[in-house]
Deep mutational scan, measured.
Amino acid sequence: QEELVKAFKALLKEEKFSSQGEIVAALQEQGFDNINQSKVSRMLTKFGAVRTRNAKMEMVYCLPAELGV
């Protein structure tokens, strides 16, 4: 569980995922086979993730800066 949270936060820091499906796929690539869209959705809510525009003006998920991840 701890490893999943770390990987999840690291992915969001990249600010390149525009959908929950993309986050699920990226986590599965890292070996988290039991991850699915509903789990990702709950984690996004739990950590207060928001959708914002990145440098390329794409809408992407990211974590609020005050979490200091």
Rank of each mutant, 00 (worst) to 15 (best):
L4M: 07
L4S: 01
K6A: 13
A7M: 07
F8H: 01
F8T: 03
K9Q: 09
K9T: 10
A10V: 07
L11W: 02
L12A: 01
K13G: 08
E15T: 05
E15V: 06
E15F: 06
E15A: 13
E15P: 09
E15C: 15
K16Q: 07
K16R: 15
F17N: 02
S19H: 09
G21D: 13
G21F: 12
G21I: 13
G21K: 14
E22D: 11
I23M: 07
V24R: 04
V24Y: 05
A25D: 08
A26V: 07
A26Q: 07
L27F: 01
L27I: 02
Q28A: 09
Q28E: 08
Q28T: 09
E29D: 10
Q30H: 07
Q30Y: 07
Q30I: 10
F32H: 04
F32R: 01
F32N: 01
F32S: 01
D33P: 14
N34Q: 10
I35C: 02
I35V: 12
N36M: 04
S38F: 12
K39N: 10
V40S: 00
V40K: 00
V40E: 00
V40P: 00
V40L: 05
S41W: 07
R42L: 13
R42A: 15
M43S: 00
L44R: 00
L44C: 02
T45P: 03
T45Q: 12
T45E: 14
K46H: 14
K46A: 14
F47D: 01
F47H: 08
F47M: 10
G48P: 02
R51E: 05
R51M: 15
T52W: 05
T52L: 10
R53T: 10
N54M: 02
N54V: 03
N54L: 03
A55R: 06
K56P: 02
M57S: 10
M57C: 04
E58L: 07
E58S: 04
M59A: 05
M59N: 05
Y61E: 02
L63S: 03
L63C: 12
L63G: 02
P64V: 06
P64L: 04
A65K: 12
E66Q: 10
E66M: 07
V69T: 13
V69F: 06
